[in-house]
């Protein structure tokens, strides 16, 4: 039996220590998804808790067809989407990206800020990621921070692999263009 299999079995048999291990192992993944999706800092902790509670309550349904991390990320994504819908922070349209939504994202003709210093780039990038459509944010995060494949990300967001790939490419192009046009990072990025 795999390590994950053993861990799941222990948790199902009521081993609290094993559940704590699962939480510690998947805390970074869940926080990546939840923090990127939920703007309100107070709710981030609550929703992350909800994620693990749901994991605990549904663990006996986990069938090992997917990776445990994929399954947990899926729960996190769905809870966060439901939260955004409940708070009316998102509509169905936001999930079916209209082609002009992107045009609008690029077309903003903002005067560039004062030149940023290298140490500021991370902060600017964070801001620009937050301005992306929610699915772009999650895809960029799962791909670069959690080293997930297009296939795994597709399972989590319930999107075809090709869509994941195209959103990822568009997201990165948007980020690059906006950092260049708004903050004049080209001197640092030479």
């Amino acid at each position: 039996m795999t390590e994950t299999g053993k861990l799941v079995k222990l948790i199902l048999s009521g081993d609290a220590q094993a559940f704590e291990t699962l939480i510690e192992e998947h805390k970074p993944l869940v926080s990546h998804v939840v923090f990127r999706m939920i703007p309100n800092p107070q709710d981030r902790e609550d929703i992350s808790q909800e994620v693990f509670i749901k994991v605990y309550q549904n663990l006996s349904d986990f069938r090992f067809e997917a990776k445990l991390s994929t399954w947990i990320a899926q729960i996190a994504y769905n809870l966060a989407i439901n939260y955004l819908r409940q708070k009316k922070m998102i509509s169905l349209d936001d999930l079916e990206l209209a082609d002009d939504s992107e045009g609008h994202l690029v077309a903003e003709n903002i005067q560039p800020d004062k030149k940023v210093e290298e140490k500021d780039i991370s902060q600017r990038l964070k801001t620009e990621i937050d301005n992306l459509p929610v699915q772009f944010r999650v895809i960029v995060t799962l791909f670069h921070l959690d080293q997930m494949s297009y296939n795994e990300i597709g399972k989590i967001l319930n999107l075809p692999e090709g869509t994941v790939k195209s959103y990822l490419f568009r997201a990165r192009k948007l980020l690059k263009d906006r950092l260049l046009s708004k903050y004049q990072v080209e001197d640092i990025w030479q």
Partner: peptide, 23 residues
């Protein structure tokens, strides 16, 4: 450059006793 920025730890921190509280 963008890629190397994207893999940086974004510093998303849950409370330190997050796991213990849940357990």
């Amino acid at each position: 450059n963008l890629y190397s920025e994207l893999i940086r730890d974004p510093g998303f921190k849950l409370s330190t006793d997050f796991a213990r509280n849940l357990v």
